[in-house]
């Protein structure tokens, strides 16, 4: 089956086209730009360019996969809004995947590991995986600290390797192959996808006003 994958949960603006046959994911084309401030501008052009390079028309797609974070809010929403509108207009299912799971799907190590991404404000998003790559804890957001693991993937691990006490492994960002692999069970089952709900993990910053300030002394 032909799948379009989209992720904007990290500084990587990622779109790619892949085929999924059994457990085999074959990436036909992919566009990635590292720019934490261009998600809204680039995600749709990237998807269009990847489709063009893969020689796949939008109408030939069987499904869409979209990373739903956790990730800094504004950029994250660019990818999700794109996937939601594409799914709506094309009449396709759009499958949400945890963006940390998409990174984990690209990890090749024989031991348990963390996936850590940058949550800004000196915090990280993280999840823990067992040696087989199954998520066993998270996703969470917190200040970087020793989480009891020795290896970590994800760009957040690189930023805070010392405080996390980890050795870095690849990949650093979600990629098309990992996004499709993380969604493969749902894709193959042709299950009805859950809603494309962002994993914000934080409440909006907003304070209720206190007593009205007087303008006269």
């Amino acid at each position: 089956m032909l799948v379009l994958a989209i992720d904007t949960a990290t500084p990587a603006v990622t779109a790619g086209v892949a085929t999924l046959a059994g457990d085999d994911v074959t990436v036909l084309a992919e566009r990635v730009t590292l720019d934490a401030r261009a998600h809204g501008e680039l995600i749709m052009p990237h998807a269009r360019d990847a489709l063009q390079e893969a020689g796949v028309a939008l109408g030939e797609l069987d499904a869409i996969v979209c990373g739903v974070g956790p990730g800094p809010f504004t950029g994250l929403r660019a990818g999700i809004a794109t996937a939601a509108a594409l799914g709506h207009a094309l009449g396709l299912n759009a499958y949400p995947v945890c963006s940390l799971d998409a990174i984990a799907a690209g990890v090749d190590t024989g031991e348990p590991f963390l996936v850590v991404t940058d949550a800004r404000r000196r915090e990280v998003y993280w999840a823990a995986y067992d040696a087989s790559g199954k998520r066993v804890d998270g996703p969470c957001v917190q200040t970087p600290a020793d989480l009891g693991h020795t290896v970590a993937a994800g760009d957040g691990g690189r930023l805070y390797a010392d405080r996390l006490g980890v050795r870095m492994i690849e990949p650093y960002y979600p990629a098309t192959s990992g996004l499709v692999a993380a969604a493969s069970a749902a894709l193959l089952a042709k299950a009805a996808p859950g809603p494309l709900t962002p994993l914000y993990l934080r409440r909006p910053d907003a304070v209720e006003p206190g007593a009205r300030k007087r303008v006269t002394a």
Binding site: G40, A81, T82, A85, L86
Partner: peptide
């Protein structure tokens, strides 16, 4: 804007 780009492309 992100959604509009996707609708227009699709």
């Amino acid at each position: 804007v992100a959604a509009a780009k996707a609708y227009a492309t699709a």
